[in-house]
């Protein structure tokens, strides 16, 4: 304890040994305080409420930063930034199937119609032929799964932007988000409008020039190359538009809402 007295004595009156001990003590004192602050901050972060209180969500402070990331990187997205496209020869013959939420066996293809809910409350119904008669667009791009794998795949369908244009949904497209869900409403995504009307975003009904297989979301799925695969919803049943973020299956499970590439 005699040593502690040196803390209040000017260095000039202390021996070199005493100064060394004093300076070491002060530095490590603050060093350990900082370690403590670090550990407590980390613990604090973990006990923060989960956003939406949904099980599997993430801590609100993390969500706040991820939403800020979205704002920052949204600015760098432009409709002129196209996902790289590839020649047909590079497209995979055997396309990976991942995820079957919303792909229930009780689906009746004969009864399927695409429902589009307009802002005035009206619902439009489209058959596959209504969609197929619009100009067809094909894309061969590197499909990127949020799990980390990627595969060059070949898809065909109607640009979502063309669908909007031909069926006069311009008013709806002025809203900030579009929501889509499977016919059984088990799987659902929300997409920001700039990404939805990006020129490579397709309402897709073909894979490798063949009708979509059942496990790839027959009869109609979304292909959105500027997002991770989780946003490329299979078997679209309903499309609606909103200024608020539509519910999103994986967002509710802790993933980034934007999930943009």
């Amino acid at each position: 304890m005699i040593f502690l007295k040196t803390l209040f004595v000017k260095n000039a009156k202390l021996s070199v040994e005493e100064i060394i001990r004093k300076k070491t003590f002060i530095s490590f004192f603050f060093f350990f305080i900082l370690i403590g602050v670090g550990i407590e901050s980390w613990k604090w972060l973990w006990v923060q409420p989960l956003d939406h209180g949904i099980q599997g969500g993430i801590q609100q402070p993390l969500r706040t930063i991820l939403n800020a990331n979205e704002k920052i990187f949204n600015k760098t997205l432009s409709s002129t930034h196209l996902a790289k496209t590839y020649p047909v020869t590079e497209a995979a013959r055997k396309v990976r199937v991942n995820g079957n939420v919303g792909m229930g066996n009780d689906f009746d293809p004969a009864k399927w119609k695409l429902q589009v809910v307009k802002t005035n409350g009206d619902t439009l119904f489209f058959t596959l032929d209504d969609i197929k008669k619009l100009p067809k667009t094909e894309i061969i791009f590197n499909f990127k799964c949020i799990e980390g794998w990627n595969q060059i795949t070949w898809w065909g369908g109607v640009k979502f932007a063309d669908f909007i244009k031909y069926y006069h949904l311009e008013n709806e497209a002025n809203l900030r988000y579009v929501g889509m869900s499977t016919p059984d409403e088990e799987y659902y995504v929300g997409i920001d409008m700039p990404s939805a009307i990006h020129p490579q975003t397709l309402l897709c009904y073909e894979m490798n020039r063949q009708p979509l297989p059942m496990n790839q979301g027959y009869p109609l799925r979304l292909i959105i190359p500027v997002k991770y695969g989780i946003k490329s919803i299979k078997r679209i049943g309903t499309i609606f538009f909103s200024n608020d973020r539509p519910a999103d299956y994986w967002f509710e499970r802790g993933y980034d809402y934007y999930s943009g590439l």
Binding site: Q59, L62, L66, G254, Y255, D256
Partner: peptide, 9 residues
């Protein structure tokens, strides 16, 4: 999901 959240923060 947890990994991505922490990584991107």
């Amino acid at each position: 999901a947890e990994g991505m959240s922490f990584h991107f923060v």
